[in-house]
Each structure stands twice: as C-alpha cells, then as structure tokens.
Design a protein around this nucleic acid. Sequence first.
DNA 1: TTTAATACATCAGATTCTTATGTATCTTTG
DNA 2: CAAAGATACATAAGAATCTGATGTATTAAA
Lengths: 113, 113
Amino acid sequence: MIYSTELIKGTLKTIVLKMLEDNKKMYGYEITQRVKELTSDKIQLTEGALYPTLHALEAEGLLTTEIEYIGKRVRKYYSLSPNGKTKSKERVNELAEFMDTMKFLLDIKTKLA
Amino acid sequence: MIYSTELIKGTLKTIVLKMLEDNKKMYGYEITQRVKELTSDKIQLTEGALYPTLHALEAEGLLTTEIEYIGKRVRKYYSLSPNGKTKSKERVNELAEFMDTMKFLLDIKTKLA
DNA sequence: TTTAATACATCAGATTCTTATGTATCTTTG
DNA sequence: CAAAGATACATAAGAATCTGATGTATTAAA
C-alpha cells in the first residue's frame, strides 16, 4: 500500500529534517530513495514536493548547501544548520506527540456519557 | 501544547469519520468540542475547516444529515452512510499504519551502510 | 541505441487550511 | 437587565502545500 499523499501533508518538512539529522549530509534525490527504502516503498516523496521544500528550509536558515560534481553531473548536498538541528528535534518531538494523540483518538471505542 | 495545524492537515476527514463511527450521530460544533476534550485541548478544530469538510463528506455520499431544532436554534446532525462506514474503517486503518511507518522513520538512529 | 536511472528545477492547477466575517440564539454574570 | 460568552450554523479571500506535468542533462544498462 502506498499512502495517500494527503497523509504526508504536513509531515514532509519533518521527514526531511529527520533524515538530515541522521545522515549529516544528503542530496535531494538521495532523500527520496532513502525514505522509499526505509518505508518499503510506502512513502514515495515526489520531486515536485521535495525540491521546493528543501529550498524553503534553506530560505528559513535551517539548511546549508554545498555543490558537488559527480563527473559532469551536479549534486546539491544539504546539511542542518545549528538552527536546523534545534528545529529538527522540536519538529520530531511534536510529530511523535501528535501521533500518540492521534492513536488515542482513533482507538476510542467507548462513548462518553 | 497545541499542535501546529500543519500536522492536522490530511487527518481531518479521518478524525471526523472516526468520531461519527464511535457516536452514530453528531453535529459540527459537538465534534469540535469532543475532539478538544478527548485530546486535552491539544487538537482544536476550527469551524472554517470543519464545516466545509462535513459538506464535502456529505457530497461524497459518506454522510447523511438530519436537522433538529433546539428551541429556535438549528442543529445539523451527521451520521455515516453505509459507504461512510466502510470508508471510515479504511481511512482509520490507513492512518494507523501510516503512523506506525512514521514512528519507525523518526526513530531511525543508525546510518545504513 | 534506446530505455531507465540519476539529478536538478519550475509551474499551473487542485486541495485544504487559516482567519475573518456574518447571522442568530441562549446562558451567565456583574 | 445589559453585556459578554457560549452555542451553532455558514461563507470566502488569501495562504500554504501538494500533484502531475514538463524541462534539461548526464550516466548506466539492456
């Protein structure tokens, strides 16, 4: 099952920050592949969503970039800035808490009086 | 902590369906209050988001409505249609699975070789 | 040699949410 | 009793974010 992209809305930035927290330095295409791999193809980030998000995070000062050439092909590596590291932890914590809350909400079986 | 509404994006329809699955019959304002109560104020649905969502679910044939008057004040009760019941279970399952996947993703500490 | 994979990017259109506004009734409180 | 707050519906402009398409270019595989 591939998750309806509706669900991924709102979590993309957090996913990106977390990937960079765990891997120091990644390029866009690599992030899509890593997430696909880690989720057994269940989360497939589209480039049309990812690249604008990376640009936005960079504009917010959370990411820094360095260009590398592999042969003639360009790669743009992203890393967390100091602010990005802080923000990443915040975001991941918030999302984890949110998911706990949602799990509770979805498991409610009894009607309250 | 009130969750940044960014996180709620994409989960609103599922929350509404689930509330109706558990309570048979609810009106809009009641849903906002129930969710607020169940989440200790952490998820606060706005009316500007909720009412259009209810209308959309009704247009999709997932909800049915009945009007009731409390004094002179109107109340619009929503219930799951047969299709709505099926859809609700699908959505809740998908969201539960998605959250498991996300938890896994957020807990990854080690870099893969 | 042509298809697929790698790697970047942009953009029109769709969807969905926020915030504000509007209407109206009922309850509480100073 | 008047004002404020709670109850209860609804719409709409603007913002944010994603989809799906399109574009360019290099490298690897079939």
